[in-house]
């Protein structure tokens, strides 16, 4: 069973979002996503300063098995990327909700965070996919 922390928000495309209440959020992929992908070997991240729209493909995570797009969960601008992943993509497998975070972004409309999935709703999606 994969881990779904209660205090995070989620997308149906398996990103997690940690909103700090002050206009910035941290984004990563969920435990379920990293486990389905298998060992990650490359992570390609956007440049800080890139303007992004919700649903835009902004990053790529590539495992031994497959490459997968990562989508911006909200409108905004990339503020910071996790540069450790360039040399250590396995951090995403080892600690998807911690050391394996992908990027931080400044959110254009803080109210839009409310539209993301909560942990219970996301767990429902995972259960459906696991069947």
């Amino acid at each position: 069973m994969s881990e779904v922390p209660k205090d995070l928000s989620y997308t149906k495309t398996h990103e997690w979002i940690d909103y700090d209440g002050d206009g910035t959020c941290t984004v990563g992929i969920t435990d379920y996503a990293q486990s389905s992908l298998g060992d990650l070997v490359f992570v390609e991240l956007p440049e800080a300063g890139t303007k992004v729209g919700a649903g835009d493909a902004v990053a790529v995570v590539e495992s031994v098995k497959a490459a997968s797009d990562i989508y911006a969960p909200l409108d905004g601008e990339i503020a910071e990327i996790n540069e450790q992943l360039e040399d250590s993509p396995e951090l995403v497998n080892e600690d998807p909700f911690g050391e394996g975070w992908l990027f931080k972004m400044n959110v254009s409309d803080p109210d839009s965070v409310e539209k993301l999935l909560d942990a219970d709703a996301y767990e429902g999606i995972v259960e459906e996919e696991e069947d």
Binding site: G38, D39, V41, V64, K65, E90, N93
Partner: peptide, 8 residues
């Protein structure tokens, strides 16, 4: 297909 980590 694997027992956890294909690379390991």
């Amino acid at each position: 297909i694997d027992y956890g980590s294909q690379i390991a």
